[in-house]
């Protein structure tokens, strides 16, 4: 890929690097490669304070008392030159068990009705894809996922719910996602995972990272209850695999 990035000042201590105005897996890989190149080549905790990767851009927050905007851009341009040589580790797939339907997924029926397919088909379609985590944002640990099948896309609820439980898995238009913390929201809730996506008290604070993939795995209610106990006791081991393997 030979796309020149665009560098703009975002206030007096930020630089927004934009790689494209189109969302694609290739561009997102470039964003991640760039983030890793920065971590490997620039002094992360002296001049650079933090880096926020997104779909097609990277926001670099730096210490403006230590380096000027111009010098920082120069350094980042040098990084851009070597991004192609960065070897990103193979992508991880995080396996997310989900109890679909019933009390955990009251809107599963809506998705089924809206698309004129059976509930089993909805579950099959939703859990048969590996979803790329393009970025984390919106709330602590919330993954922006790509790759959902159009056959299960469903508009948001007309009236949002005041309270959606943490771990709820939902559909909004042609996006799917998981609520890491209890919050209000208008997504069609189709199931729930017993896993904790965000825990401010313990490392790792968030379960998911940009660049990983998510694979939903259907579980029944009993399994959900058992897993939830294990999660609460700290004995549950999250299942990971490498992208491409079964």
């Amino acid at each position: 890929m030979n796309i020149k990035a665009d560098y703009k000042p975002s206030g007096d201590n930020g630089i927004l690097i934009v790689f494209s105005n189109q969302i694609s897996e290739d561009i997102n890989i470039k964003v991640r490669g760039f983030q890793q190149a920065i971590a490997e080549n620039l002094n992360m905790h002296n001049e650079i304070i933090e880096v926020i990767p997104a779909y097609t851009s990277l926001l670099v927050i730096y210490d403006a008392t230590k380096i000027t905007f111009k010098k920082m851009v120069e350094k980042l341009r040098c990084i851009e030159e070597i991004v192609h040589s960065i070897n990103l580790p193979p992508s991880e797939v995080v396996h997310i068990p989900v109890a679909y339907g019933g009390e955990f997924g009251p809107d599963l029926i809506n998705v089924s009705n809206h698309n004129g397919i059976s509930i089993d088909e909805v579950i099959e379609l939703h859990s048969s894809v590996d979803y790329l985590i393009y970025m984390i944002g919106f709330t602590p640990g919330f993954p922006y996922l790509g790759g959902m099948k159009e056959k299960i896309s469903t508009p948001r609820l007309k009236v949002p719910r005041e309270k959606i439980e943490a771990g709820s898995v939902g559909i909004a238009g042609n996006q799917t996602g998981i609520y890491p913390i209890e919050s209000p929201g208008g997504w069609q809730i189709i199931g729930r995972t017993p896993l904790k996506l965000f825990n401010p008290e313990e490392e790792p604070y968030v379960l998911l990272k940009a660049g990983q993939y998510i694979r939903f795995e259907a579980i029944d209610k009993n399994t959900f209850v058992n897993m939830q106990n294990e999660v609460n006791e700290g004995t549950y081991k999250v299942k990971y695999s490498l992208k491409g393997s079964v």
């Binding site: 975002s10 206030g11 201590n13 930020g14 927004l16 934009v18 105005n21 969302i23 926020i52 990767p53 997104a54 779909y55 097609t56 851009s57 990277l58 926001l59 927050i61 970025m135 944002g137 922006y144």
Partner: peptide, 10 residues
Amino acid sequence: VISGGINLGA
């Protein structure tokens, strides 16, 4: 715009 990082004071 396509969602991305926001700085303080944006």
